[in-house]
Design a protein around this nucleic acid. Sequence first.
DNA 1: AAATCACGCAACCGCAGTGAT
DNA 2: TATCACTGCGGTTGCGTGATT
Length: 228
Amino acid sequence: MEAAGNGEHRKGLWTVEEDLILMDYVKVHGKGKWNRAAKFTGLKRDGKSCRLRWMNYLSPSVKRGAFSEEEDDLIIRLHKLLGNRFLFNLDIRTPTSCAFGQNELWWSLIAGRIPGRTDNQVKNHWNIHLSKQLGVKGKYKIGDSSSEFSKKPEGDFNIKSSSNDRLIPSNKTEAELQNVLEGSHEKAKEITSTQEPILTSDFYDPYLYAPSLMELLDESLDFLWHDF
DNA sequence: AAATCACGCAACCGCAGTGAT
DNA sequence: TATCACTGCGGTTGCGTGATT
């Protein structure tokens, strides 16, 4: 790989030596302040590159190797939950639905529920493997009403096969899951109807609803994750 | 054996949010 | 209040490698 145009920062794949230098730095100074890390270590990388390398590869919490069936299944479930149940079907024409539903993919949120996997890993895995496996044409985007994914019938997700049954919490049934999701939908409506959006000059600030909705979403995800 | 193709993954890019000064 | 550095995210790109011709 060649250096960047200004000759200051290297680009491309990291070498073993660079990895070791960055790991040593983090060992001593901890994570964060990546720009300073880049300067301090003498690495010819920018801070963003250092951060990305650590978060996606060097961090001990990152799990390497192939995704398990359980992980695949969970990704599919979460993707479905975030895309079709919670967000896309949240048929409220408010700033919130715009903020959370239009062309947004919450890979970080999904990845956060899969121990050891990064958003980048999950995103790549979805785009390369799972989207094909599910017959999704192109790259699915939450909020894209024309996407093949959003039109998929329930049964096509292969989430009820015997090998995957354990992914449903032992003390909860699909019907209960449905109830929780419906409840989330209702709660979300409530939140968006009771919280006054603040109107700035000529647009709503969509993120003003975020905290309540994020908590609500987390509750729904906890339901999925609980008892694993 | 060489050339081409397809796939998987790591890394980059651009943008936005947040906090410090 | 304005500015800047830092952080985090999703989308995209392009390299490495194995399979195929």
